[in-house]
Design a protein around this nucleic acid. Structure first.
Lengths: 185, 185, 185, 185
DNA sequence: AATGAATGAGGTTTCATTCAT
DNA sequence: CATGAATGAAACCTCATTCAT
């Protein structure tokens, strides 16, 4: 039962991971429009190899986003525990940074050519739950306006990522303003 | 310069305007990925006619953005005169609305596959000047924080358009927060 | 109203006819599995040209079969008038010859990878009607057994085409036997 | 020749037989276009195992046909002894049934993408000999026209299989007609 | 000897751009 | 000048065959 064929997977797993990593980098650089052949070339494998691991381009894209999302959520969970009042802000600005170097993540959040809730419902739910949790903590701590809801936060993420991607580090000048806007009073 | 044949020019000019209008609508609806043939079909002209007026698809795209930008700037000039304190905010949120229904404009501002300053330096300069003017008026009127500069405003435009496009009218819930963030104190 | 743009069609029509002819020959020789690129090469056009006239490979195939079927039916109508007793036999053996050099027609009749009744319902109906007509005439003339129906005739066509294709002209030795089997008594 | 390792041979032989059986079923169901991987999956072996036993897909196909042909011939030999007058007819219609559910056999007889005489000369010779034998018996018994030769019979087999495959059991309505055509007088 | 992962040529289809009519 | 047909370079994806494990 437990023989999920490990020995054969030795190289396959290596290749799968390699493809995933290269595809992540390539999508991050070039966006979802990049040809599979280009990813294959960069990964040093044949196009067929990618299709063995991921049946469609869409599936590959999903796998990457799921992977990234998992990392982001994991990290956020750790942060959330430490400072309830700051958690949401830290997460918002962290996501902005991530989106700046990861076009795939941006597109996933913005829903351009990829609907997160449909494609990765579980990841989306987990993400939303975490977001709601952080928001509620901030509101209880008095650092976040009570009339802000989860959808507003998601919208802000999309906006922040767009700004950060557009302006680079200079966009961080605006973080205090966004924060001021979200703060009660 | 040598305007000898006016009647033909009349046709040509009409065609050019028609193509520009239809292309604007089509890009706005479908995004930059739409085939030239589709635009030609909607405009009721041959694909060759489009290429007579615009050497590449990119050039057509630029022409549209330039056109839209001109309109936006023109309208903003009128508004700017009426209420110095509100001008910048009105313009920001107006642009957000525009970007929501005009993917081309969004892409132009965000610089995705299209650099405004390089492609349309004149329009960009005009736009920037107007922006600086409105910003200065707001700051003089005391409705805008003095540490905000023109680049910040442009960055905000990109963010606002992304939000508006992502969330639709619901995004307007965030306008007051953005405004609060920009207001002194 | 009547301007179905003839002047521009001059070369287009030529090309369309050329593609149709070459595709017919190629399919007849190689079967439906032949690549579009091969047809394009033989026709001396780009692959895109074929796709301009026929949106899919399937559509091209249908157009050819429809064309051939029309010719076959037309010819059969002429023959049917002359000799009621012989019409059906003449048609059967004529179709056998056609199928021998036209794999597409064979596949269409045999329904392998292409369902005539679904794809070209009108042509199929016309063909069936003609067939029923010839059968009834033969039965009235006493040259065809009364217990044979239209479906039997279609089945025989498929069989005859397979035989003719397999054995070439030698297959004609069997025509008298088939005829004897269909004759009353 | 050097049969030193029997246990491994046993495995290999079992595997070969298993592949052959599954491949037969799969080709019969799906036609020759089915991927090797699909056959491997159904057989529960790796694709490499198939290639160990059969150097190409074509060779696998040949092996299957040879196998089937052997069975058909064997069965026919048994039948031939019982009733000389009926033997040929029984065999013809039996082959028609076989071809209906076995696309491989049909293709082998019809020579589509596969020439029996070239690929499997021995099996072909054996088959032809049997056929000639049955034909001669029928002619001596007076149930088969004397001007029919072995090639005619083969041609009829191809035709009958095509009909049976096309029309299913309904095609059996035509068996008496074929028989009548082959009967003297 | 078996496995199934990797390869890469090849298939269908799309579309920016050119060019004959 | 306008037209839209033709081009041909990709893009995505499949699958027979080879080869590392």
């Amino acid at each position: 039962m437990t023989e999920n064929d490990r020995p054969l997977r030795a190289d396959a797993a290596r290749n799968r991971a390699r493809v995933l990593r290269v595809a992540y980098e390539t999508f991050a650089e070039e966006g979802a429009g990049v040809p599979i052949d280009e990813i294959a070339r960069r990964a040093g494998v044949g196009a067929g190899t990618i299709y063995r691991h991921f049946p469609t381009k869409e599936a590959l894209f999903q796998a990457i986003v799921a992977d990234r999302l998992r990392q982001v959520v994991e990290r956020a969970r750790d942060q959330a525990a430490t400072d309830p009042g700051e958690g949401l802000y830290a997460f918002l600005f962290h996501l902005a940074e991530q989106g700046a170097t990861d076009l795939g993540l941006t597109e996933a959040f913005a829903g351009s050519g990829f609907d997160l809730a449909t494609s990765l419902p579980e990841a989306e739910r987990e993400f939303t739950t975490l977001m709601a949790d952080m928001l509620a903590r901030g509101q209880r701590a008095g650092t976040v306006r009570p009339d802000v809801d989860v959808d507003d936060v998601k919208t802000l993420i999309v906006g922040l990522q767009a700004m950060r991607r557009f302006r680079g580090e200079q966009a961080e000048r605006l973080y205090p303003l966004i924060r001021a806007g979200l703060t009660p009073r």
